[in-house]
Design a binder for these strands. Sequence first.
DNA 1: GTCTATAAGTAGATAGAC
DNA 2: GTCTATCTACTTATAGAC
Lengths: 207, 207
Amino acid sequence: MTSSTANDTRERILAAAATVLSRKGYAGARLSDIAELAELRTPAVYYYFESREHLVNEVMSVGQRSVLEHVLAALEALPPDADALEKLNSAVRAHLEVELTLSDFATAVTRNAGQLPPDLQETFKADSRRYFAMWDGILGDLAADGVLDLDLDVRVARMLVLGALNWTAEWWDIRHGELDDVIETAQIFVRGSLLKRPCDDLYSNID
Amino acid sequence: MTSSTANDTRERILAAAATVLSRKGYAGARLSDIAELAELRTPAVYYYFESREHLVNEVMSVGQRSVLEHVLAALEALPPDADALEKLNSAVRAHLEVELTLSDFATAVTRNAGQLPPDLQETFKADSRRYFAMWDGILGDLAADGVLDLDLDVRVARMLVLGALNWTAEWWDIRHGELDDVIETAQIFVRGSLLKRPCDDLYSNID
DNA sequence: GTCTATAAGTAGATAGAC
DNA sequence: GTCTATCTACTTATAGAC
């Protein structure tokens, strides 16, 4: 079918746009660079996308939403009786999986999020708020389980976690080790950063 | 003196460039936007800077180096017998102080670091390596003091810390609370993420 | 579907007055 | 030192052939 081929070309342009966007930025990503990477001429892009802006915006929203969707799916796949710590580990893993496998989309989004035109900013912020709320839910569960370090400002801590995770797309590549190794260290790291020291329990049990 | 006024204007253009860069990106920062924010006309910029590229590059290198310099100064200000944990707290505080007080420079750098022209990339990477090495020194001291969580991949952990800290410039403003509160949570957060659980010591002492 | 040729608009940079 | 006027180069987008 021609539609299958056409769709492949569309996806190829989208992926090329993500790569160029992550390297040149929202304003610097030239249609000619994207076309060259997708192995066709500039005007051919207009067969698939209405304008440069539509193409670029699609990269941003695909990249941004895929994180939210992938993490939500991972949480829903957990058994209903999963505790807060399992949710935390699962969310860290899922976030890094999308972030690093779709890393051109991820870096395109993180580097250019603050540079979006006003209308897209709205959509972006709405999605961000939903994502933050999901993490606040996990932190809330940790608190309910009595394992959250109560010396932390919760909203600040949530942003520090997301910063550590989002930033991976800026530096990680396969030379830094297997994806699973990064995920494992990140899980230990985040767990340590949020959880109260087990010996606090020990002390409080002693009282 | 005229040279004092001239210098003020130069600084004003530089600050305006940082702001515009952080919002529009490396390629999107128009000289006309920068000039408007600095309250003069575009050609006046050429009296102080050789070209758009020179101006933009100066913002990037000032922003990037100031973090390194400020943190080094903070570490050198510590008493010679300071232990690894004091160094860690001091580095976290110093990093956030520059990052958040110079936040337009900071976000300009973090958002556009990967989008620099090749020659600046070299300088940038060299400075980054020095900064990473400094943090590796702190982590090494923690390990030497026997308090580092040995389950962590050290290089990955270092990048997670820097991600958490760098990312603050993306979300923090005064509405998220006082700078000192952010610093305090970040110190607890980073300490928890890197240090082995005190009760591990407890257990090992029991053995 | 993809191309070549080209129109229309914009941004960096320079010339020269004040 | 800063301005107005202008040149040049580049990029998006369209027209129309194949």
